[in-house]
Design a protein around this nucleic acid. Structure first.
Lengths: 297, 297
DNA sequence: GCCAATCCATACGTTTTTGCATACCTGAAA
DNA sequence: TTTCAGGTATGCAAAAACGTATGGATTGGC
């Protein structure tokens, strides 16, 4: 075969890809963990090598030229393949020692995972753990994490999932707050309380309606995307919030609202990429978490 | 976005691809125009970086491991995208000076192209020309050539083609050979002559049958894939062969067999990749050849 | 309108990579 | 068995790429 057209510096293509996606040389250099002058030279060299201007230097930053935009789709394809290569290669590694990245919601990351990770690290001291605490689902396909804990079953066929239990979610308030609003006991009384909302969470409002509460926008004077900030607001007596029962019940100064009624039960899924499940280290951590969460749940 | 899984040395992936496809480090190094030790170190470094053994060093050469085979498909995808990148980038170049690669059959390359290229180089001294003389169609998609001359219309939509004339093909023999077989004049007499065959060319035999000749395997004692060797055999009086009329008629000592009858007329197409046609140099050469061949044909 | 922040390009010393020469190995043929 | 051809790995000097430091330029906020 003729390899002439493949025989250019592929690292320069990578430099072009990340620069275009990140929008600036500096940001791309940070992402690739190299310095900005190096990346600048790589991109310039690629432009010279191809004989095509990829970026227009305008003021503070770069802008893709029409030619650069045309060429970007091909380096994107290279990047996708490179990503798959790295993913599959990781899946072939049989080493238990090394790094693993877990993704979970803030609450799970803050309250459920720490004791499990402590136990894991006693059993497997060679494994270092990174926790991505995020309330949106990480993209396992792009390997933003190796293993994710999610409240829903993934639909993508390239992901494998195991249901490890159910989380009962309840309404919680500090005793101070309940005193301040006069120790309500009826649903009608709770309809006049303040609640904390997570952005535009329709599912949560629907669950509350099903619970029996008739809440309007005025019931949500506090909004935060951060579940941990939300929990602090609850603990400090600003409003009523929601929490997994096993966590909320452990919190002194906070009590469950109408504990005899169930607000919401959500499943808990362990998810990993199919390719990565062939990696021994991922398999070990996955099975460990599955056993611990199932046993505890 | 998270670029960690893309952040490995892409040149090492290229080294892996070409080594796997070529079958040995030495061959791959020749293809990439680098030295074998360099390539050896790149492949070794990739294996170490991924933590996966790609090749098994087995005696005289390398052999892909099962893991290497799995990973090969992804670097193949990277290579395809890299190829498209280079192709598209070349198409964006506006420089007239530079190199261009023409593909044609041996006969066309040897007899039709030389005067045209001479004229082209007088008009455009900055263009250097490479001729790929091959009797199978070069893969313009993989850029084995920039422009091809073909006897048929390509079907791939990514190729653009222009019909530049028709080639009349006739049967030719040396006067010495015709004397030796007794100056035959009838079809029946020519049925007892010797002919030269190009491998398994059904189309040619069908044309001869349509011409009126009833030939069997015994009529083809000489076989060669090389059209030029074939022509030498004709000139040196070993058998009857075929040739474009304008070339055959110019050859002293060789005459056309039954010139009043037409053996075959085949179109001549100029073909280029759609992406490359936006390259000014390719456009210049393409249009030059189209004009010259149309005017001459 | 000025200042701070951010970004890109260039200069120079250092690190990494490459090419050359060479040693070593295997498989086939004399 | 010896020899030879073709292939892979290692030592060392040259070349290329990289990081640090720095200058020039523009945007956004006060």
């Amino acid at each position: 075969m003729d390899w002439r057209s493949v025989n250019f510096d592929w690292n320069r293509a990578r430099a072009f890809l990340v620069t275009a996606e990140e929008g600036s040389l500096s940001a791309a250099a940070r992402a690739l963990e190299i310095t900005q002058p190096t990346l600048s030279r790589q991109v310039t060299a690629l432009e010279k090598e191809l004989g095509v201007a990829l970026f227009e230097r305008i003021g503070r930053g770069l802008e893709l030229t029409p030619n650069g935009l045309d060429l970007l789709q091909h380096v994107r394809a290279m990047g996708e393949a490179a990503n798959q290569l790295a993913l599959t290669a990781s899946g072939r590694s049989e080493s238990v020692e090394g790094h693993i990245c877990l993704s979970a919601t803030e609450v799970t990351a803050a309250y459920t995972l720490p004791p499990l990770i402590q136990k894991l690290r006693q059993q497997q001291p060679g494994i270092s753990v990174e926790i991505v605490a995020s309330n949106h689902a990480s993209d396992l396909q792009r390997r933003e994490a190796d293993i994710a804990l999610r409240a829903f079953q993934p639909t993508q066929p390239e992901l494998i999932a195991r249901r490890v239990g159910d989380i009962e979610v309840g309404l919680y308030a500090s005793t101070d707050y309940l005193s301040a609003i006069g120790h309500p006991t009826t649903l009608a009384a709770f309809n006049r309380a303040d609640y904390i909302c997570f952005g535009e969470n329709e599912r949560l409002i629907e669950a509350m309606r099903h619970f029996g509460l008739e809440l309007s926008r005025q019931n949500f004077p506090l909004i935060t995307e951060s579940h941990l900030v939300h929990w602090e607001l609850v603990k400090q007596g600003l409003a009523i919030g929601i929490m997994p029962a096993d966590i909320g019940d452990r919190e002194p100064g906070v009590v469950r609202v109408m504990p005899e009624r169930s607000l919401l039960t959500t499943p808990l899924w362990l998810v990993a990429h199919r390719e990565l499940k062939t990696n021994r280290r991922v398999r070990v951590v996955f099975d460990f978490l599955a056993q611990e969460l199932s046993g505890a749940g």
